[in-house]
Design a protein around this nucleic acid. Sequence first.
DNA 1: TTAATATATGAGCAAATGTTCATATATTAA
DNA 2: TTAATATATGAACATTTGCTCATATATTAA
Lengths: 123, 123
Amino acid sequence: MPQRATLMEEQGCSVRVVHLERLVQARAGALSPRQLERLSALYRAMGDPGRLGILLALAQGEMCVCDLAALLKVSESAVSHQLRRLRDLFLVKTRRDAQCLYYSLDDLHVNQLLAVGLAHVEE
Amino acid sequence: MPQRATLMEEQGCSVRVVHLERLVQARAGALSPRQLERLSALYRAMGDPGRLGILLALAQGEMCVCDLAALLKVSESAVSHQLRRLRDLFLVKTRRDAQCLYYSLDDLHVNQLLAVGLAHVEE
DNA sequence: TTAATATATGAGCAAATGTTCATATATTAA
DNA sequence: TTAATATATGAACATTTGCTCATATATTAA
């Protein structure tokens, strides 16, 4: 097993590589660019304090748009934009009752992501 | 239980609220601003395709900086910047062997966050 | 000690992001 | 149907973010 980098030719550029077998293994197990983009978009959506505040509030039960706006002290328009993004990524879902749209977490994965993240931050 | 919004005075501004009891409940269970910032920073760090690629590679075993750079086809400097951020948030840790620094996932929470996220995206 | 290797860091710049404001749509009440 | 309520959306602007380039630090070999 080499401990020093060797120079490899890749796409016309020379690249330093120490453990070629790890590179090969990592590439074999890598996601497709499309999957990688979807997964990173999921975490990115949770990475804004405003949107995360929405998700944490919904973890305790469904809420409508104007209550979320009041809770987070931002405009209803801003909340609506954030909710759209969360919905596009299947992080939240809606239920309509008259004029109100009630938002809640989409599935158990979202609860789990929040729980594990919290555990990591609280240690 | 009111179905229509009532106007509340909050910090000098009037705010529409439909379900006051949900608001009170959500505020009681809310994180401190500091915790919210830390948690969102955690997800935000995972939300970049480059950094996520690093984490997914490390989920299969430790790697050094130059191998990661070769794998992800970016400069070693860029990888180093990304690794620093991941390390600051306790997502990765290091082990030194001679000149090489070997990076690996910091604890099981990180594996779990990746696994749950993948499950959510793959459904 | 000096040179070479491996990684880290700071400043600056281009690209991505979140909010606001104005306006649009959808549902219900009159 | 018309007015009122609740939410959604598009464009524009200010902030944040991630990369590059140059340089710095740390470890080992000579």
